[in-house]
């Protein structure tokens, strides 16, 4: 069976610094594959190469077996990859609902009534609302995004990822900056999602990672030093030495 996402020999360096060093990785349909690693290991750089924001120097990225390495970011999104950002990235000047509606609209296909006011297209607004409700933000739908809290921004990011209906969700530290309660509810939420979507999860919160991940890969200085089931990673000497041991 071909994995949903397959990464072969990915390489990227900035000047003399190697950020991604011969990375091989895959995500199987329906699994949550977590990537952990110390700061500066190149996790966000890796995500950026998968979403298409950065061009790798070498290597290939396959989605459902077809090569997408040279596809620009917007084309990858159309093929079913969505990404959340480590540093919240939303359209701050629009309402919360608008943000999610833009995600719904992106995969809504073309319609001939292209001059119709976007905010009056019922099925888009309803579906956006539905996804906001899933993350518990229906009440704030009509508020200006910039007025919401950091935690709520993280929830909007998830709602957008859901609304985009992507097969593969690249979640870059979704728990970053969340309080313990918020984190716990996000973990519970992602658990429910398990099996429906495939997720590549970058996360620092080890409790969350071990609670959610089907498989874990450890990225250190741009290299994958181990991939395996959570228990295997927990007991892997190299990992303990390189990463867990530091804590």
């Amino acid at each position: 069976m071909t994995p949903l996402l397959e990464i072969n020999g990915l390489k990227k360096s900035f000047g003399g610094v190697i950020a991604t060093d011969d990375v091989h990785l895959d995500v199987i349909k329906g699994e949550i594959h977590a990537i952990i690693g110390p700061n500066g290991a190149g996790k966000t750089t890796l995500v950026s190469q998968l979403s298409g924001a950065l061009k790798p120097d070498a290597g290939t990225v396959l989605l459902n077996g077809s090569d997408i390495t040279d596809k620009p970011a917007y084309a990858r999104a159309k093929l079913g990859i969505t990404r959340s950002f480590q540093i919240t990235s939303l359209v701050m000047g629009m309402s919360v609902l608008d943000n999610v509606a833009l995600a719904v609209q992106a995969r809504d296909g073309h319609s001939y009534r292209f001059l119709k006011p976007a905010r009056k297209i019922a099925h888009i607004r309803e579906e956006a609302m539905l996804n906001l409700a899933k993350v518990g933000l229906a009440k704030r739908a009509h508020d200006l995004t910039s007025e919401l809290s950091h935690g709520e921004h993280r929830q909007i990011e998830i709602a957008i990822a859901l609304a985009s209906n992507a097969e593969l969700m690249l979640l870059d530290e979704p728990m970053a900056g969340l309080g313990p309660n918020e984190s716990a509810s996000l973990v519970a939420f992602l658990k429910e999602l398990k099996g429906q979507r495939s997720i590549l999860l970058i996360e620092h919160d080890m409790d969350a990672v071990f609670a959610l991940a089907d498989r874990i890969s450890v990225l250190v200085y741009g290299r994958i030093i181990a991939t395996g089931l959570p228990d295997e990673i927990r007991s892997n000497d190299a990992v303990r030495h390189a990463y867990l041991g530091e804590e």
Partner: peptide, 26 residues
Amino acid sequence: IVNSRFGMVLQGAKDNNERMVTLGYN
């Protein structure tokens, strides 16, 4: 134009281009 879906994307891209590209908009 501004109120249409096209206009929404245009304004979204003004505010946060990266987000719009990530959503699949060229």
